[in-house]
């Protein structure tokens, strides 16, 4: 079965919406503590792949394994729901549009799931909220509602919310794409800090500089396939495939 070192393993992932095939035979392994970036234009399937790992967009073919357990295994509906909820507790996800719960304060956003699912006491939850919000530099906003926070602050709270479940793996789906340029850095800082703590992460991004500085490995996806992958210094400086070169050229021009 999976080797000890292959923490996340995606085999022959395939996904269709009707007749449209958005993922075609994708294979990917991520080791414990590794940070993998996925780049590509919109519609390349990169977000779909990320969301499949959490079963938000279930695959139509192939397998996803996390730490020796198959995420998308075939089970009767009721058992599958139980299984997937348990799997999702181990995987944190951060969305482009934050998806903070607007009717809860930052503290409540962070403590809701641990209290409900791990049955921890209010005191423990409170300590957890302080710890996680402190980590993302949001302790001073602990009792603010999302509507009172800036975009960057919201995203940092959303990261704290995901971390509070003590996930083994963090997924970032264009976490800074919806932010005003001046707010991007504060979120990137938090992600870098996680990288230093050797959190396993898969990061879908359109920020090449950030991917280059943080990721151990970068994948370039186009039209539902992984065109090329490798260490960032190779992929960005010396790509092997024409499609990658073209994408990078366009993207870097766009950035100027």
């Amino acid at each position: 079965m999976t080797e000890q070192t292959d923490f996340v393993e995606i085999r022959h992932a395939q996904k269709s919406f009707g007749t449209l095939e958005v993922l075609k035979d994708i294979n990917l392994t991520v080791r414990r503590g590794q940070i993998v970036g996925i780049i590509g234009s919109s519609g390349s399937g990169k977000s779909t792949l990320l969301r499949a790992i959490n079963d938000l967009d279930p695959l139509t073919g192939g397998e996803i394994w996390l730490d020796g357990v198959q995420v998308n295994k075939k089970l009767p509906h009721r058992q599958y729901e139980k299984h997937i909820n348990a799997m999702r507790q181990q995987v944190g996800m951060v969305f482009q549009h934050f998806n903070l719960f607007p009717h809860m304060t930052a503290r409540e956003n962070v403590t809701m799931a641990p209290m409900l699912l791990k049955k921890i006491s209010r005191e423990e939850a409170d300590a957890l909220a302080r710890e996680q919000l402190d980590k993302v530099g949001m302790l001073n906003r602990i009792d603010y509602y999302p509507s009172q926070l800036s975009g960057g602050q919201k995203q940092r709270v959303a990261i704290a919310r995901a971390l509070a479940m003590k996930p083994k793996l963090m997924l970032f789906d264009e976490a800074t794409s919806a932010l005003d340029p001046e707010l991007v850095e504060e979120v990137n800082m938090v992600m870098k800090q996680l990288a230093e703590e050797h959190m396993t992460m898969i990061i879908v991004t359109h920020e090449m500089d950030f991917a280059a500085s943080v990721c151990d490995r970068v994948l370039f996806m186009d039209k539902g396939v992984v065109v090329e992958e490798g260490p960032p210094e190779v992929l960005f400086r010396n790509p092997a495939k024409e499609r990658t070169r073209e994408f990078l050229r366009k993207h870097l021009e766009g950035a100027k």
């Binding site: 959490n54 348990a86 999702r88 944190g92 809701m112 799931a113």
Partner: peptide
């Protein structure tokens, strides 16, 4: 917003939760 349910589900909450 659909993202609200997604965010809750990714934390491990069941459909009903």
């Amino acid at each position: 917003d659909k993202g609200q349910r997604e965010a809750a589900r990714t934390l491990g909450l069941s459909r009903w939760q």
